[in-house]
Nucleic acid binder design. Structure first.
Lengths: 220, 220
DNA sequence: GTCTATATTCCGATAGAC
DNA sequence: GTCTATCGGAATATAGAC
């Protein structure tokens, strides 16, 4: 019912677009204002500073993450739950990829954001662990209980820095949605050696599914 | 024979220390000069700008990397070659950890450094692949040939962003050498599910070895 | 809510004396 | 080789009119 974006929302939306396009660090409040055709003073009427903008964007991201990840139905296939999870995580990562393109730098400049991020990540870790345990319970993977937490961290690291890795490998070619989805394939490869013989063909099937999504463009 | 450091070398050494301590982005040419008790003008006599300093530091790093990694003796144990490799990589990573703490940002600001980094990484990737092939040939791990390159990328990603990951997880507690060595353990965990039954105990032994090194302080 | 104008701060970099 | 002095540039942020 609210078709009109208030200036505040326009600033947030334009900031996301600019950040994704040219990098958060390169975009100043002046750029954002100029891009929208408003004055810097106006922008500072709505936000205290750039940190404030980034913080609110992250809040929006975190809210989407929570909303979109439904607890898997008890009777659901464990592998389907994994796929659904990867879909949500990577889709949101694409929409806010500026954040992941320079995570340590962005966090280093804002303690409040740091706290917020840590809180969200704690939830993510628990989520990943529970997915791993479900996969083990359903005999999809075989893994020692004591290794689960470490493995979860490795997965999280891979996901978190996939975009950064792409940028270091090919800094010139811009990130696109297909290249982001190649990260899913890397995650699946991490799972593969843990897979039980019976589950392997189903993982292969998942791989093919995501290979499709990732094939639009060459990046790896 | 040359005990005295020339000003140029003192600048490089002080820069590395400051960068590691407070982050490359936060350190300006003024800070470096002030830290050494010399004038900014003097610094600019020796270096064109900060990029120039970072570039020369990277050159030094790359040279050390090449020098210290000897091609493994043909008769050597494949696992020993892996351990030696990990030792060198992580030790140098520790000495230059400012670089890895903000890699995408640093590279984004300097195309020449980008090229240099890409060149070095190409060599690293080939090296990792050859270690993996040796491990496979000696029946230490079991892996499909088609998966080797992808797996090598995953290892490289994990290693490259291990320090960044630490910083996002606990931005307050400073990085130390022990926490860096926990990255080695994460790498070994990646290998574990690929290990053949006969090799598993030797990998466990390696894990214990690095667990010792990583135990000085808690970080994970 | 929005604009114009401006104050401040800080960094990068150079000129010229010693 | 080193210093002092300084300028230009850019970004942050605010004051005050409309």
């Amino acid at each position: 019912m609210e078709k009109k974006l208030r200036t505040k929302d326009k600033i947030l939306q334009a900031s996301i677009a600019l950040f994704n396009e040219v990098g958060e660090r390169q975009v100043t409040t002046n750029h954002i204002a100029a891009h929208l055709g408003i004055s810097p003073g106006n922008l500072y009427y709505h936000f205290r500073n750039k940190e404030d903008i980034v913080r609110q964007i992250f809040k929006e991201y975190a809210k989407l993450l929570e909303t979109r990840i439904k607890p898997p139905a008890a009777e659901a296939e464990a592998l389907d739950a994994l796929a659904e999870y990867l879909d949500v995580v990577f889709e949101l990562m694409w929409r806010f990829h500026f954040f992941y393109a320079n995570l340590p730098d962005i966090l280093a400049r804002d303690r409040a954001l740091q706290q917020d991020y840590a809180r969200v990540q704690q939830g993510v870790l628990e989520r990943v662990v529970s997915v791993l345990k479900a996969l083990k319970a359903k005999a999809v993977i075989e893994i020692a209980d004591e290794d689960i937490a470490d493995f979860a961290h490795s997965i999280k690291l891979l996901v978190t820095f996939w975009i950064s890795y792409l940028k270091t490998q090919a800094p010139d070619s811009p990130i696109n949605q297909a290249s982001v989805y190649q990260g899913v394939l890397k995650v699946l490869l991490l799972f593969k050696p843990y897979a039980t013989a019976q589950a392997r063909p189903r993982i292969t099937k998942l791989q093919q599914h995501y290979a499709q999504l990732a094939m639009t463009e060459q990046t790896s």
